[in-house]
Nucleic acid binder design. Structure first.
Lengths: 368, 368
DNA sequence: GTGAAAGCGCTAACAA
DNA sequence: TTGTTAGCGCTTTCAC
């Protein structure tokens, strides 16, 4: 690994000053065409690659945006394998449709992946690089600060970093959080109309499927989840139905906990006619548990989700849900970040993108 | 957006020198506990975030790895939408299973996504940030050099950047290419045994399904593709069957071109009994085209792929293929990069991971 | 049109 | 244990 050639090396070899080398790259119009050609030729020949660190230091911008993401796949089957580990030598003839629902669904992109895809594409389109970080085995606070130190703006999923850390970071660079805005953070936000989406869905269940006994499943801790629960309740209230006070699951419940709810409800004969889940992932886990307990979906119990992840269209019965425009949300994140970068005096920006109902089999619509 | 506090600000406020501030973060053991606490407290209070650019400049390392990727999704339906564009207001009741195969398959992760996932997870696990770039609307050469200037090591997919650009970059930082090694590049490589995988698959078709008239479909330009074609041919040769000289498609053919092949073959009554495709994406396109032309799969024509992408287990008939351990390949990439970083004197590393046969419906195995 | 030189914020000798 | 200081490679203002 040879030492990298620098502006000095190029300048010397080309017989010009370092300023000219720099200008040849950044301000071509300020350099006579012939000198520019000569400099670029020498640079190419020497394999000169400008140091982003030096440039970032000099002009105060890094040209990169950051995304601090989940690592929900950390416990995926493949994860703990050593990089060089040797899988079984004989052909894998196992039918992967029998491989267990969870493992199977892990093969599909989830919410964060879809959003990340949008962020990536928009970053590249606008000429920015994207620095992605996720909390691995380390301290989230350290990692998010580390990323923040490397970029011109950063996006975070909700509940991934402590609020005060984000607040401090937001003092220096624009931060977009992918959730509804809370009271008065200085962050920018990209979100959807959670309440409306869930209200539309609930109304559909009530009006089209004539359901009257609906329960809510999943964590309602975050702002978005609260919005969804609110939408659920308002639809029930408007229809004059009984309005549950809370989700069937405790605060902070995971999909696993949602699934564990099922056998209890079955045992107690307390299954409602519909289980309205706060996310697709919860819904998929619930459907899996219901089927495993001999309960038919949507025959005995209707199940719905929220997000619109790909796995929902693969599972049987296919999942009725509320689709968030995940990729567009990722693009909006970048758009906001660059807006704020272009005009630092602007206040926080919040963008709410529309949701749409996706009616499939699990509510009783469509082909069985 | 306030100006970011620097070491100087923190040092002044804490009444110490900048070296002490720096040490408080990087060499905690070199600073008396009480001063360290005090410094860290001040830093936290002021919202100090160290500048990665400055650090990178000073110590010559950035703490990030790079991945230069595809953007094969650039023409996805969602792509050209403006970030704030408003989708239709009414519920989306369309059954997305009818939405067109291609749009549907785009919802699933492809080869590069799976590999990228592995790179991400391993980077995070080892405490590195990951800078991802893809060729957007810009010059690939510029972009890959730009990324290279920001990281300690970089991984690239084959054919994404000109060979001489890579060679120059490899002079400065370790580069891993995700393909079989060519004659004598100085790059590191992560790959699979393409020839063996394709030979196993072809042997399966010959022995178990008694097929004798097999053709190869897809681009054979790259080293990996060549290996697959070689494996295909060697299986045919060993079985005493006729060995085609070339792929049915011209060099550089895309999945679209592979699909366009189908109507021609149908019209000419020249359909072979099996179409062995060089990638899953080609195979999916071919299956789609066959079904659209009223040809049954695997009844009339057997189709196979190579890669093991998720879409292959969703399509009907489910795709028989050769699975690459994509996530493990991503992890291996990072492993190699960090090895080379730790020992710069080491020569290029090539790691070949094993493949496995995945027998599903499209070859005639399993449930129809 | 080109060059000299002053930083950008941090790290790590070396001094104290 | 802490402080001083010389870079790291680049951008950019100001002279020439």
């Amino acid at each position: 690994m040879a030492k990298a050639p620098t502006v000095y090396d190029v300048a010397q070899r080309a017989g010009v000053s370092i300023a000219t080398v720099s200008f040849a790259f950044r301000r071509p119009e300020k350099v006579k065409a012939s000198t520019r050609e000569a400099v670029l030729a020498v640079a190419r020949e020497m394999g000169y690659v400008p140091s982003a660190s030096a440039r970032g230091l000099a002009d105060g911008r890094t040209g990169a945006l950051g995304l601090f993401s989940f690592d929900y796949l950390l416990d995926a089957p493949d994860h703990h394998a050593e990089p060089g580990a040797v899988p079984p030598a004989r052909p894998d003839t196992r039918d992967d449709l029998d491989a267990g629902l969870n493992d199977q669904l892990r093969a599909f992109p989830l919410y964060v992946d879809e959003v990340q895809r949008g962020v990536e594409l928009e970053c590249w389109r606008r000429g920015y690089a994207l620095l992605v970080g996720g909390r691995g085995h380390e301290n989230a606070e350290t990692v998010v600060a580390d990323i923040a130190g490397r970029v011109d703006g950063i996006a975070v999923f909700p509940h991934t970093a402590p609020a005060d850390v984000l607040r401090r970071i937001a003092l220096r660079i624009p931060v977009v959080e992918l959730s509804q805005a809370s009271r008065d953070d200085d962050l920018n936000h990209v979100t959807v109309d959670n309440a409306r989406g869930m209200r539309l869905l609930t109304e559909h269940l009530i009006r089209e499927h004539r359901l009257t006994n609906l329960a809510f499943v999943g964590d309602t801790t975050g702002f978005d989840q609260q919005g969804r629960f609110r939408g659920f309740r308002s639809a029930l209230r408007a229809a004059g139905l009984q309005v549950p006070r809370a989700s069937l699951t405790p605060p902070g419940a995971t999909g696993k906990q949602a699934a564990e709810l099922v056998p209890r409800l079955v045992r107690d004969g307390a299954l409602p006619r519909a289980l309205v889940c706060v996310t697709d992932q919860d819904a998929l886990a619930v459907i899996d548990a219901l089927l495993a307990n001999g309960v038919s979906v949507p025959g005995d119990v209707v199940v719905t989700g929220f997000d619109g992840i790909a796995a929902g269209m693969v599972i049987r019965p296919a999942l009725t849900t509320v689709r968030q425009p995940m990729q567009a949300m990722g693009r909006a994140v970048v758009d906001i970040l660059l807006d704020r970068l272009a005009d630092p005096h602007r206040g926080p920006i919040s963008r709410q993108l529309p949701v749409s109902l996706v009616l499939r089999e699990s509510c009783g619509c469509g082909a069985r």
